[in-house]
Design a protein around this nucleic acid. Structure first.
Lengths: 182, 182
DNA sequence: GAGCTTAGCGGACCGTCGGTCCGTTTGTGG
DNA sequence: CCACAAACGGACCGACGGTCCGCTAAGCTC
């Protein structure tokens, strides 16, 4: 990979990250804006990331790594319910901290949330925990339901909820769903 | 209201309904398409419905009325859990029957699912039932979570699930969440 | 039924956006 | 240092949502 290519790629990511962090509405950030902010031509932008979604995915991937790191760092070893609750809490925190970016990712249209690489990952993890807690029956769907309960636009809709309120909600949901009822 | 205005409004709704019913991707239906299919000028289209979202909302409203009627017709009088399950089942059925239209409504961007008039309605109803079943604590959030579990793009994502599989999932979720744990 | 008023019409037009194309520049291996 | 390909960048394109305004005809008045 040529040196300038690397440099430009980095510049684009940095600029885009800055723009998404500062914006209030993902749709207000055009690809031209990103290119301009990165001091790069539009062609370069599209050659590196394919299309808008590609760029957003790349950004999300980077931020997501930090989340995964955080999560790996202090993973609670308690019962499944505790681990699920912990994960959901972190997901909500992540989506609040990266509002515009996650909105851009999950609202790109055409079932976009489900096309993110990370979705599969969280879903598998959750399904396992659910299964561990209450048996395999419907664990798959319940994992989807849990993830749906922390979707970025719901987080957005409940914008001004305090941490406590979120916590109460997530706790109630998790405990309910993960309670063994076999 | 002038006669031709009424006629045109009707023509647009009919044409749009037809188009949405036939399409596989909401984004492939442009406002020009709708106007052309209705045999009407674009200006007329926008004067009647304001913008794209207005049109989709109008359509959804009409279809939604049928759903409400269905729901009012055979409402089960059992315990809250049964009533919630019934509602969720019907919502899923509705979203499968009106795939493209509900996708258009819920994917219009900017938290669109939460801006539909009907959302508030279902949420209030569910929150009441949840509260009745397990007390007011977090009932609000749990109702949101239940609705998130039947969001149109999740339904879409799980596209080929059989009725039985959906039923198992919804049953598990509903029973879990509505179980009194006070 | 004629005439007048105005609600309603329609389609040319506009700005924006995602994405492409291609002539030009620039990094790099030999 | 040269040659050549890789990378660049911005003019360009087609599509789309939405607006504007000159024209049409609906419907009221007398």
């Amino acid at each position: 990979m040529r040196a300038d290519a690397v440099r430009n790629r980095e510049a684009v990511l940095a600029a885009a990250d800055r723009l998404f962090a500062a914006a209030t509405d993902p749709e207000r950030i055009s690809m031209d804006d990103v290119a301009a902010a990165a001091g790069v031509g539009k062609g370069t932008l599209f050659r590196h990331f394919g299309d808008r979604e590609g760029l957003v995915r790349a950004l999300h991937g980077i931020r997501g790594d930090r989340l995964r790191t955080t999560l790996a760092a202090d993973r609670p070893d308690g019962p499944p319910a505790e681990r699920v609750l912990h994960l959901l809490r972190e997901l909500v925190r992540f989506k609040r901290d990266n509002r515009v970016l996650t909105l851009a990712l999950e609202n790109a249209g055409n079932g976009s949330p489900y096309r993110a690489e990370s979705y599969e990952e969280w879903h598998t993890l959750l399904a396992g925990l659910v299964s561990e807690a209450r048996g395999p029956e419907a664990a798959d769907y319940l994992a989807h339901a849990l993830l749906a309960a922390v979707r970025s636009d719901l987080v957005e809709h409940l914008g001004d909820w305090s941490d406590e309120r979120w916590d109460a909600g997530l706790t109630a949901l998790t405990r309910s769903v993960l309670r063994d009822m076999r």
